[in-house]
């Protein structure tokens, strides 16, 4: 599982928790463990500070330090997702966990993932715009993403038809383990990869790769939102 490395977490933790004394830290740490264990959703630093009755800075320091400790010694992890912190089982122990809790694995079709990627990078976006990008009917994929709760209607386009505008949800961040949308690689990275693949294809077909440079200009050229 990717995310912040142990070293960077350690750096953030020592920066922030200098003021917390050892005895107080132990008590707060145990309280924090309990809170994260029972929480059914990610808890923000603000919520943690309210619960622990400490400043947000201290709460953040504590949770980062605890996350670091868990990463080093436990089968559980404390991770930052969807703008908050939550306790999860480490993926490498999933086979054991699934014997007790055989939750079905989330499966999304290729087309649903493509639509989700488009919505993620261009939200808010309407169905006609998605279909213009893909060139195929996307209603089914949008419907299943809505049913999974990964996208939602965030508004309507002004003008004729008042097309629904779609955006991603907090559940999307949770399911994909993202702190925020900004955690995703920028769209330009995928465009560079696409350009590389096209160049490679053209080389294989005997064409001149240099001639076929494709610029992503147009209505959906893309800067990540």
């Amino acid at each position: 599982m990717d995310g912040e490395g142990v070293e960077s977490l350690s750096g953030r933790a020592t920066e922030i928790t200098e003021e917390v004394s050892q005895g107080s830290y132990e008590e707060l740490k145990r309280g924090l463990e309990c809170v994260l264990f029972v929480a059914p959703r990610p808890l923000t630093v603000k919520e943690l500070s309210d619960i622990l009755q400490v400043s947000e800075k201290k709460a953040e320091g504590l949770v980062i330090r605890l996350a670091q400790e868990y990463r080093e010694r436990s089968g559980l992890l404390i991770v930052e997702v969807a703008g908050g912190w939550r306790m999860v089982t480490a993926p490498e122990y999933a086979p054991y966990v699934r014997r007790v809790f055989p939750a079905p694995k989330a499966r999304l079709s290729r087309s649903a993932l493509e639509v989700l990627a488009i919505i993620t990078y261009h939200q808010p976006i309407s169905r006609p715009e998605i279909e213009a990008l893909r060139g195929v009917d996307s209603e089914g994929a949008i419907q299943s993403l809505l049913e999974y709760g990964l996208i939602r209607v965030v508004g309507h386009r002004s003008g004729a038809g008042r097309a629904r505008l779609f955006g991603t949800t907090t559940k999307f961040l949770e399911v994909f383990g993202l702190r925020s949308i900004n955690d995703l690689p920028p769209l330009s990275e995928w465009q560079e990869r696409a350009a590389d693949i096209l160049s490679q294809r053209l080389k294989e077909e005997g064409g001149d790769a240099q001639q076929e440079t494709v610029s992503p200009s147009g209505p959906f050229d893309g800067q990540k939102n």
Partner: peptide, 27 residues
């Protein structure tokens, strides 16, 4: 076609993340 290919790459990334994070179970 180019945009499509770029989004397919992004979709592949999401698929990989989904595969990994599906194993990180939470309450």
């Amino acid at each position: 076609g180019f945009q499509n290919l770029a989004f397919r790459q992004a979709a592949g990334f999401l698929q990989e993340r989904l595969r990994v994070w599906a194993d990180a179970l939470a309450r």
